[in-house]
Design a protein around this nucleic acid. Structure first.
Lengths: 209, 209
DNA sequence: CTTATTTTCGACACTGTGTTGAGAATGCTC
DNA sequence: GAGCATTCTCAACACAGTGTCGAAAATAAG
């Protein structure tokens, strides 16, 4: 794997590794990881089962790598809101929309990474990194707004965790049960729920009807 | 298994089945289900591995049965609040405390049942029943209060789901990371978070400091 | 005590995982 | 483009865990 800014051309192995990740991403859209065999993953990337182990130590290891590649994207989603101040409902909503769209596509494996109780050490490491990043960014925003007297009382860390978990479970549910709610209503309700959670207010103005 | 109100004495098999459930409950406090073998579960109940299959079809089937037995308790926790009207912070808080205590003890398998993305059909069935019951009760309370003009706007179903998920993830996190927060603060924050989520208000009065 | 039913468990077949080492493909150097 | 080191591939193996079967033992019923 050439480093991210590397000038070196990707070797055959690098390509194969990426092919394995890409193939896995597709395969994992269909069925839960527990029901996907390594044989299947290897086959989808065009190699024999035992060849898989040249690239990844195990299924969870691949999953962790998969997640790792998607972190940048997830961060970008909420970036605008996280950097702004005050409620800024529009920015928050837009961030959630972006996040939501990713969930609708790759929710299968995202659930495994972020929700599964015991996804193995490799995944746990990535999860903790991602969650910590998210919580920290969120927490810092809350602390900023707390100084301006905008937020409710209560530990910013706890509030941030709750907000993030609320988003997580809402999207996970939406993935598991796509027809249960109207997407727009879901996002609006979630947006307001988070604002209410952190600021204790539901802003009256809405960009969309 | 004699029906719940049965007069018939439990046969040896009934006892063994219960022993299996009790033993599993204990074993599952130590390590995640994925790392517990059927051999281990059977051994803990004093029978051979293959004997396990006389009582349960599989590991998930036992887990579902385990959960099934605990439903009554979980319902009882929140009962008082669910039947009252208005915010009633004290009742809500007390319900959450009860629920929380159960989580601290049996959180390991409760996570598997309520959080795992793909716990198998048997568990899924029980989960859906429990979650639906909980959501329905919650939703009805919200609808009642909505008529009284107490709640925020928004689909009661969505609000109920969010509240329940907030509780779920908060307790699951607390189980996974017991020292991260002060229990009292956690419960207080969660109580207020739920009230804010549903009613848009944080009641000033608190029973406890 | 006899008979029917329930319970137990060893032995088997099967699926999926992870390892190893020999050989093939690749790419680097001159 | 021949030689050489490195990277990659995969068949064969060993193993752990699951689930099934049927014969025997334990229990309950008559």
């Amino acid at each position: 794997m050439p480093a991210i800014g590397s000038r070196r051309a990707p070797t055959k192995g690098d390509q194969r590794e990426q092919a394995l990740l890409d193939a896995a991403k597709v395969v994992l859209r269909e069925k839960p990881i527990g029901q996907v065999t390594i044989d299947e993953l290897a086959g989808a990337a065009g190699i024999a089962r035992s060849g898989f182990y040249f690239y990844f130590e195990s299924k969870p290891a691949l999953l962790a790598a998969l997640c790792d590649q998607s972190i940048g994207l997830t961060d970008a989603d909420m970036g605008r809101w996280l950097e702004s101040d005050g409620l800024d409902r529009d920015a928050l909503r837009q961030g959630l929309v972006g996040s939501f769209q990713r969930w609708l596509v790759d929710g299968r494996w995202m659930r495994e990474v972020f929700l599964a109780p015991d996804p193995g050490p490799e995944v746990m490491q990535v999860r903790e990194r991602v969650v910590n990043n998210g919580c920290t960014a969120f927490r810092q925003r809350i602390e900023r707004d707390a100084k301006a007297g905008l937020t409710v009382d209560g530990s910013p860390t706890l509030l941030a965790t709750m907000a993030i978990n609320l988003r997580l479970t809402t999207f996970a549910d939406a993935f598991a049960n796509p027809t249960a709610h109207d997407p727009d209503e879901l996002i609006d309700t979630l947006t307001d729920a988070i604002l209410r959670l952190v600021y204790g207010v539901t802003p009256a103005q809405r960009t969309t009807a």
